[in-house]
Computed example of a mutant assay.
Amino acid sequence: MNLPKVIIDLVNAQNSFDSIAYANCFSETAVVFDEGKTHNGRNEIQHWINQSNENYKSMMKPLEYTGNGTSGVLSAECSGTFPGSPITLKFHFDVIDGQIQHLKVTG
């Protein structure tokens, strides 16, 4: 599977529970939408993923990636300490200049 470097970095940061490295994959003005909530900017994203790591210990196993220009969708098996684990989620990305500008997580 041919993943963009920033997506590889994001998966590695998630799987090592490194919220700082995870947030650094995003631009300063990035937006994340997950579980019905919007997180704006790198600081909010770092806080969100840190809380998620503490609560769920989620790990990602990439299954498939499709990209089209600056947009891409990663399907990943996510496992952790949450009900229904493992589940497959889709991560919809917009990447510009090597940083994630937008991420929407769907089931």
Rank of each mutant, 00 (worst) to 15 (best):
K5W: 05
I7E: 01
D9R: 02
L10A: 03
V11I: 14
N12G: 07
N12L: 07
N15M: 09
S16G: 13
S19D: 13
I20M: 10
Y22I: 01
N24W: 04
S27Q: 08
E28S: 09
T29Y: 12
A30F: 06
V32W: 01
V32N: 00
K37W: 05
T38N: 12
G41Q: 11
G41D: 07
R42K: 15
R42G: 03
R42F: 03
E44R: 13
E44D: 14
E44C: 12
I45V: 07
W48E: 01
I49K: 02
N50E: 11
N50H: 15
Q51W: 03
S52E: 06
S58L: 11
S58P: 04
S58K: 03
M59H: 15
M60W: 05
K61P: 06
E64M: 04
N68S: 14
G69R: 14
T70R: 15
S71T: 09
L74Y: 03
S75F: 08
S75C: 09
S75D: 10
C78Q: 06
C78W: 05
S79V: 04
F82L: 05
P83R: 08
P86H: 11
T88K: 12
L89M: 09
F91E: 00
H92W: 08
V95W: 03
Q99T: 14
Q99K: 15
I100L: 09
I100M: 06
K104R: 13
V105S: 02
V105L: 06
T106K: 04
T106H: 06
G107F: 13
